[in-house]
Design a protein around this nucleic acid. Structure first.
Length: 109
DNA sequence: CTCTTGACTGAGG
DNA sequence: GCCTCAGCCAAGA
């Protein structure tokens, strides 16, 4: 038994775990790597279940480097704290030097 | 089955 | 550079 949609979610978790320390990526980058560039929203949607997974969702942001999902962690600055703890500069929920810490799975893998 | 919402992105003004 | 609109796919009511 196999569900393609479920497989997509699973792939998202796999890629998210592959994100190196001190690096971040975008939903679209993951979606594109999975061959579903138009399903970037699904990546974020999949992250909804990341709470029960070992997925470093704090390393996944939108293409602007904005921590859109910080509200889903605890509603405070936990997500930002985690990123800063890895050496990523974050100000006002937005990542600084995004180009420097950006990690593209379709290029790195 | 239909409608709404959503951790997105690209294009246009 | 910022704001708005449309497209995209999946899940919940």
């Amino acid at each position: 038994m196999k569900t393609e949609t479920l497989n997509f979610f699973d792939k998202v978790y796999q890629v998210a775990r592959l994100i190196p320390y001190g690096k971040v990526t975008s939903y679209g980058a993951i979606a594109t790597y999975l061959g579903a560039a138009k399903s970037a929203r699904m990546v974020g949607y999949a992250m909804n279940g990341s709470g029960s997974k070992d997925v470093p969702a704090h390393r996944v942001v939108n293409r602007k480097g904005l921590l859109t999902g910080k509200h889903y962690f605890d509603g405070t600055n936990l997500m930002q704290q985690l990123l800063e703890s890895e050496g990523v500069e974050v100000v006002e929920n937005q990542i600084k030097n995004l180009e420097r810490v950006f990690w593209d799975p379709s290029k790195e893998l």
